[in-house]
C-alpha cells in the first residue's frame, strides 16, 4: 500500500460500463504490482517476485504459443488429418520433465540466501513487542518503558459503520489511519516480537516486505529496517482473519531519523 491515498474521482456508484471502460485508461500503475518498498528485504522480495513473473510469462508464451499454433494449424475445418501414430516420444517427454525441474530449482535457489537473511535476527538495536487484540494493536518498546495501544482512527470508524451516510472517499486514508502510530527510527535494524492476546493476527506493512503471524501463547520474531533516506509514514493492516473487525485494524508506522526518534521516545517516557 503506498503512502499516498489515491483520490477516486469516480462516484462510488458509477455505472457498470463506465467503470469497465474508464478504469484501464485512468489506471494508476502502482496499483497493478507489488510495491518496491522502503527496506532491503522488501526490495529483495520485489526482485524475486519480478524474476518469477518474467519466468512464468516466458514459459506461458512458449506453451500457450504451442497450443494456439496447434489450434489454428490442425483444425478439421482446414482439412487436417489426424496422425494417430503420434503416441510417444521418449526424448521429448524426458526433455519436458528435466527442463522444468532445472528451471524450478533455479527459481528456488535465490530464495535461500534471502531467507537466511530474513531469519537472522542478530544485530538489532531495538526490540518492540507487538501484541494483537480483537481488534487493535499494542506496542511495547522493550526496556524503554514505553507502551501504548493503536486503534482505527475515529474518522474511518465513523464512516465504516453500515448506513453511516459518510462517503469513504471523503475520509483521509480511509481504513488506513490509527489514533497513535508506531514510531521507529530509520536505518536501524528493529526486532519485532509478535504475539496475540485472543486469536491469531498477522502484522504486515507491505512497504517493509514482511508479514508474520501473531499467535496467542507464542512469540514470533521478525525484523524490519527502514532505509535511512526514506523517513515517512507507512501503512499496513492485520493480515490474518481475526473475527468481525479483521478488516478494521490497520497498522501505521512513522519512520523518522534516529535522533528525532530518540527525542520522541524520551518524550513518551516522560509522559508514561
Amino acid at each position: 500500500m503506498s503512502i499516498v491515498k489515491r483520490n477516486s474521482k469516480l462516484p462510488a456508484a458509477a455505472g457498470a460500463l463506465a467503470a469497465l471502460t474508464t478504469v484501464p485508461a485512468r489506471a494508476d500503475w502502482s496499483l497493478l504490482n507489488m510495491p518496491k518498498g522502503v527496506s532491503e528485504l522488501s526490495r529483495d522480495i520485489y526482485d524475486m517476485h519480478m524474476i518469477m513473473l518474467w519466468i512464468c510469462l516466458a514459459i506461458a508464451v512458449v506453451t500457450f504459443g504451442a497450443m494456439i499454433y496447434a489450434m489454428i494449424r490442425f483444425r478439421k475445418s482446414r482439412g487436417a488429418v489426424a496422425d494417430t501414430k503420434l503416441l510417444h516420444n521418449a526424448r521429448l517427454e524426458a526433455a519436458w520433465t528435466i527442463v522444468p525441474t532445472i528451471i524450478l530449482i533455479g527459481m528456488a535457489i535465490p530464495s535461500v540466501d534471502k531467507l537466511i537473511k530474513i531469519e537472522d535476527m542478530s544485530g538489532s538495536k531495538l526490540t518492540i513487542k507487538v501484541t494483537g487484540y480483537q481488534w487493535y494493536w499494542h506496542y511495547e518498546y522493550l526496556g524503554r518503558g514505553v507502551s501504548f495501544y493503536s486503534r482505527l482512527a475515529r474518522s474511518s470508524d465513523l464512516a465504516r459503520q453500515r448506513g453511516s451516510g459518510i462517503d469513504p472517499n471523503t475520509v483521509d486514508n480511509y481504513l488506513l489511519e490509527v489514533d497513535k502510530p508506531l514510531v521507529v527510527p530509520t536505518g536501524t535494524k528493529i526486532r519485532l516480537l509478535l504475539t496475540a492476546n485472543d486469536v491469531i493476527h498477522a502484522w504486515w506493512v507491505p512497504d517493509f516486505g514482511m508479514k508474520r503471524d501473531a499467535i496467542p501463547g507464542f512469540m514470533n520474531e521478525m525484523w524490519v529496517s527502514v532505509d535511512a533516506d526514506k523517513p515517512g509514514t507507512y501503512r499496513g493492516k492485520c493480515a490474518e482473519l481475526c473475527g468481525a473487525d479483521h478488516g478494521f485494524m490497520p497498522i501505521v508506522v512513522v519512520a523518522m531519523p534516529p535522533a528525532e526518534f530518540e527525542a520522541w521516545l524520551a518524550q513518551q517516557e516522560l509522559r508514561q
Binding site: 500500500m1 503506498s2 491515498k5 489515491r6 483520490n7 477516486s8 469516480l10 462510488a12 467503470a19 478504469v23 485512468r26 489506471a27 494508476d28 496499483l31 465504516r160 469513504p168 472517499n169 486514508n173 480511509y174 481504513l175 488506513l176 478488516g247 478494521f248
Partner: peptide, 8 residues
C-alpha cells in the same frame, strides 16, 4: 471493506 484506492 477496503481502502478507497482499491475501488476500481
Amino acid at each position: 471493506d477496503y481502502p478507497t484506492q482499491f475501488t476500481d
